[in-house]
Simulated assay, not measured.
Amino acid sequence: MKITMIILSLFSLVSLSACAFKENKASELETLASNYGGIYIFDKKIREEILENERKKGEAMKKMSLGDDFWDQLKIIEKKFPQVLSNGCKYYRNDYNYDVDDPDYDFNFDDKPEFAYYEDQFKAYMGEENYKKLRPYLGMTTYYVCEGKKYPIVFATMIDYKVKSYGLFGDEGRGFSFSSISRKSAGGGSFHYFTNNKFIKSDEKYTGQSY
């Protein structure tokens, strides 16, 4: 009986220590995500121009009436508010997604050498070590094209990671295990503006509005 109690006590201590490690690891990533997650904007002026054009277009579309001429109305609005900037370049939204290191994704910075400069800016801002820990999912939500070259404007980030918990898991049907792995996601809600060749975290918070 005493041996059983000792074994159970040791198991409990190991489980508690492992859980504490799990919580500390998760806390570290969540803290980093809070500091570096959010919306990254490489050109604030162009982003604001796009948002204003999209706002006007949206307001015009709200006034459209249903009927046989619906598509004609839409064509008129599209012509009045084209996805073209004041510099004559066409812009695009919600087009490319990048996952920095995950080979399961089709797009990443490694196979897009033209975006190496932008990856370098993320690394410089987050720090090489933090960048590797976070392995941020990067969604390029807005960019424009001039003379065939793409210029990113806005990236959104998401941090996805795994947490291993120790304990007694399962049941008689599935069998028992002393560990379990769960996936978690964390992301900050701040805007980061590229100013004077470096990112600066803004007090502005992302609250679900268009970006």
Rank of each mutant, 00 (worst) to 15 (best):
1 M>V: 10
2 K>Y: 02
5 M>H: 13
6 I>S: 10
9 S>H: 08
12 S>W: 01
16 L>N: 05
20 A>T: 09
25 K>W: 02
26 A>H: 00
30 E>H: 04
30 E>K: 13
33 A>P: 02
35 N>F: 00
36 Y>H: 12
36 Y>L: 11
38 G>W: 03
44 K>I: 10
53 N>P: 04
57 K>E: 07
57 K>P: 02
58 G>C: 01
61 M>W: 05
62 K>C: 11
64 M>V: 15
71 W>S: 10
71 W>G: 03
72 D>L: 06
75 K>R: 11
80 K>P: 05
81 F>E: 03
88 G>K: 00
89 C>I: 00
89 C>S: 15
90 K>F: 02
91 Y>W: 13
92 Y>A: 05
97 N>Y: 02
98 Y>P: 04
104 D>G: 02
111 D>Q: 06
111 D>L: 04
112 K>V: 02
114 E>S: 11
116 A>D: 13
116 A>T: 14
119 E>R: 15
122 F>N: 07
123 K>L: 05
129 E>G: 10
130 N>K: 06
131 Y>R: 06
146 C>D: 07
149 K>M: 14
151 Y>P: 02
153 I>V: 13
154 V>H: 01
155 F>M: 11
157 T>S: 15
159 I>P: 00
161 Y>M: 08
161 Y>A: 09
175 G>M: 12
175 G>R: 10
176 F>T: 04
178 F>G: 12
185 S>Y: 05
185 S>H: 09
188 G>F: 01
191 F>V: 12
191 F>I: 13
194 F>Y: 15
196 N>Y: 08
198 K>L: 09
199 F>P: 09
201 K>N: 05
205 K>G: 04
